[in-house]
Amino acid sequence: MTRHDILNQLTVLIGYLELSRQDISDPGMLTYIDKEKKAADMIRSQILFTRDYQNIGVYSPQWHNIAETVSLATASIDPSQIIIRANLPQTEVYADPLLEKVFFNLIDNSIRHGEHVTEFVVRCDYEGDDLQIIIEDNGVGVPETEKEKIFRREYFKNTGFGLFLSREILAITNMTIHENGTPGKGARFVIQVPRAGYRNPLGDPASEPAKK
């Protein structure tokens, strides 16, 4: 039996749990069904994690256009519900082929845990010679005590594996990520790209650090 077969059976199981919920009115039984569905969803999440994790570093890094990658990562988001403001230069970064998943994970995590996120801003800045890719939202933000914990594998029960995977993917080409938003005002993820890890193939002035 393959991972695909297990996921198919889980999908069937979750579907039957949903149908059972519609036919049952007893509060006690509904509580059990909710717990069963939550357990099935967690199993599905863990199986998907094994699939994604085994692919990290399998293929050689390549150059990715940041604007195009962000556009692909956000293509499934309903613009009537979530606004994406991406003002990005034509800069390319050298990263694992799973870079698109990093942006998807960051935005998906904010939507699921930000409580009332309606807008994202994605932009670039510079810190010395390093490029910074900044993803900000208008949700509840991340508590000060959890800003580092959210990237740890053991923290998946609260945030899923997405942020842990994102840090692992970025680390392959020496990129780092941290969260430094203001709690209560929104999350702010900063991806730090060393000078050797980005380039400006089209001569866009915005793709280079300001001259001092």
Rank of each mutant, 00 (worst) to 15 (best):
T173G: 03
V58F: 06
E127I: 10
A196W: 07
Y53V: 11
F49N: 12
E119G: 09
N8R: 10
E146A: 12
V58Y: 03
E144D: 13
K35N: 15
Q192R: 12
Q90L: 15
R195C: 08
D26I: 08
S110V: 01
S80R: 11
K37C: 09
V142T: 09
L99T: 07
R188M: 14
S20T: 15
D130V: 03
F120T: 09
G181H: 03
G162W: 00
N200A: 12
A40F: 02
D130I: 00
L17E: 13
K38F: 04
I191S: 10
V122F: 04
F156A: 08
I66M: 07
Q54P: 00
V12L: 12
L72Y: 08
Q46P: 01
I56Y: 01
Q46A: 10
V140Q: 15
L163S: 07
R112F: 11
Y198N: 04
K38C: 07
G160W: 00
G57D: 13
V193I: 12
Y198H: 04
D52V: 13
S110N: 12
N180W: 01
Y126N: 04
K212M: 05
V142S: 04
I111T: 08
M1H: 10
M42W: 15
T176L: 09
V12G: 06
T118V: 06
E18Y: 04
R152H: 15
M175L: 04
L88N: 14
S110D: 08
A39H: 15
L48T: 15
V102R: 00
L17M: 12
A210N: 14
P183N: 13
R123C: 15
V140K: 14
K212S: 15
S166D: 04
Q46D: 12
A171H: 10
A210R: 13
R195G: 05
E100G: 13
Q62L: 13
G57N: 06
P205I: 13
I177D: 07
V122D: 02
L88D: 12
Q192Y: 00
F164T: 03
I111D: 04
L165R: 02
D108G: 03
Q54D: 12
K37V: 11
T173C: 14
T91K: 01
N65A: 13
F189L: 10
